[in-house]
Design a protein around this nucleic acid. Structure first.
Lengths: 178, 178
DNA sequence: CAATGGACCGTCCATCGTGGACTGTCAAGG
DNA sequence: CCTTGACAGTCCACGATGGACGGTCCATTG
């Protein structure tokens, strides 16, 4: 019973208790959000497949068409199988870099604008992560709980450093050098 | 004439001269590869759309079914428009983090294995980037040419630091804590 | 009390992205 | 001459994204 990463993630989330598709989409956003996005459409499609394979059990339709999904025994097995499988490669797509690669044809003022907007977005994210880290530490979070968050922290720190070194004052975006 | 990022990238690549779809796919891999992947299927699909909109001109079919694509005047305009538009958000998908988020159900030995394999892959990438940087500097590359490469460098450096701080000896993957 | 806005729940669709299988053509070298 | 491999394009299945849409239930507030 091989499942793809997104389906496996749903199985993983279902360990915390049965849930509707809607609820699973929310859990996914809350718990995986920044390093593994899952859309609502995605959730329902995968859930259908998982049900077909008997990896989740679907309950009766309740109020507001709610259908509760429960992890089955074979679902748990499939989840563990996936967990031990080799993870795929990272996917990183940076629209700003694409523009920078072609920036020779872009008005310098507009370029500076784009850069500063993007930088601000990253700064905001970093601030958010720092708050989350502080909150987690305050409530006794372990390193184990913080690994993924720390990845985000390191990432945003690195990106900001890159902005300042390459695109900041003295960098080619603000003039002077070639 | 609004175009998506991938189509725009093709227009950008076509500034370097007319090309077949095959050739464009190669240019894309060589010049954008690591921060904006474009597959062959993608290239042909987008090229069809661009031709329909008159943004590229398709020449006669030559040897080996080769069809040369040329950037048109309106194609150039569309490219500039896209260039000045607001870039979308970064997409970052890290399969390893997904596993770490669920790692409580994974055999610790297997976990260490996964982590070390992934770390090695990143180390290799970093080494490659460093070589590219040295080569670029040696042949008189400007900061402008290096911006995107430097992004990759900062990224890989940060990721490796993260590996060593969070998952290395003393981190929860190798035992002791958490 | 009524109504109304907002959370909840699911469906559908268009478009984009990825990778592999497949067919065929031409050129170069053994 | 003939085989290998780069060149060139097609097709398909699947995964991912985001928006539009339809409906239901509940709490607040007018």
């Amino acid at each position: 019973m091989a499942v793809n990463a997104t389906a496996a993630a749903l199985l993983g989330l279902l360990r915390d208790g049965a849930a509707s598709g809607y609820e699973l989409a929310q859990r996914a956003t809350a718990e995986l959000g920044d390093f593994w996005t899952v859309t609502r459409s995605q959730v329902y499609r995968e859930l259908t497949g998982l049900a077909d394979q008997g990896l989740v059990e679907v309950g009766q339709t309740g109020a507001r068409s709610r259908r509760e999904h429960r992890l089955t025994a074979s679902g748990r097995v499939a989840f563990r199988e996936w967990l031990a499988a080799e993870p795929g490669a990272d996917v990183v797509r940076i629209p700003l870099l694409l523009r920078l690669a072609f920036a020779d044809e872009l008005d310098p003022a507009r370029l500076r604008e784009l850069v500063s907007t993007q930088r601000a977005a990253h700064a905001e994210r970093l601030a958010r992560y720092r708050e989350l880290e502080a909150a987690a530490l305050a409530t006794g979070g372990t390193d184990r709980d913080l690994v993924t968050l720390r990845f985000g922290l390191r990432y945003e720190e690195a990106v900001l450093r890159w902005f300042d070194e390459e695109l900041g004052p003295g960098g080619w975006v603000s003039g002077r050098r070639g």
